[in-house]
């Protein structure tokens, strides 16, 4: 055997390469089984970035389905509650250019809102309770309903089903605790000669 190899050195190289090939092939195969990734991690990552209002303005029944659709190549600019911030974040995650928000799906709201039920007018039909994607409305048939403001995502979905139009979307008021410093005026692009002229 050794003699044959000594006679044909090419055989040694062949054996070594094939051996390595089999070894690493086996290793890779093993790793593929052992460290298999359950589900599509990109969907989870996109879902993390979406605002989770579950409002359905994108045309999908919730944020997760839209995340799945984005992973399958859908446009990333269909989420008005997330707005440009979310679009930018997804764009940088997927390494694609960030488009403007698609106006077809709605406009980015300036203010966060929260649903408020005018309780005197509520007839207790439970339709809004069924519509709420995050179970933030409390009540029972023929009993007055109310919104748990802390749980409300401001998705708007309860407004439409209400037969007596007793649900308002109120802007969330910012208190002294939520306040933070506004951005200073951006530095003017002045140069020294401009400054002299203005003085």
């Amino acid at each position: 055997m050794i003699d044959t190899i000594a006679q044909y050195p090419i055989l040694a190289a062949l054996i070594a390469l094939v051996g390595l090939g089999i070894l690493f092939g086996g290793l890779l195969g093993f790793a593929a089984e052992k460290f298999k990734v359950e589900g599509d991690p990109i969907v989870e990552q996109i879902d993390e970035l979406l605002p989770q209002t579950q409002c359905g303005q994108c045309g999908f029944p919730g944020c997760k389905p839209y995340a799945e659709s984005i992973a399958n190549g859908d446009a990333i600019n269909k989420c008005p509650p997330g707005g440009q911030t979310t679009i930018n974040a997804i764009a940088s995650l997927l390494d694609v250019p960030a488009p403007e928000l698609d106006a077809e799906h709605g406009e980015e709201a300036d203010l966060k809102t929260v649903a408020y039920i005018r309780e005197d007018e509520c007839i207790g039909c439970t339709k809004c309770i069924q519509a709420c994607p995050v179970d933030a409305i409390l009540g029972a048939a023929k009993l007055m309903h109310t919104v748990i403001a802390d749980e409300c995502t401001g998705c708007d979905l309860c407004v439409e089903p209400c037969p007596v139009d007793c649900i308002d979307m109120l802007p969330v008021e910012e208190g002294i605790k939520e306040w933070h410093w506004p951005a200073p005026v951006a530095p003017a692009n002045l140069i020294a000669s401009d400054r002299r002229a203005t003085q």
């Binding site: 605002p51 989770q52 944020c63 994607p133 995050v134 179970d135 749980e151 995502t153 939520e178 933070h180």
Partner: peptide
């Protein structure tokens, strides 16, 4: 700093909303 803190608070909120959803 304010913006980052706001984003953190929103992240907590959205995680909570996802769980509830």
């Amino acid at each position: 700093k304010g913006e980052i803190q706001k984003a953190r608070a929103e992240k907590i909120r959205s995680d909570h909303a996802r769980e509830r959803f």
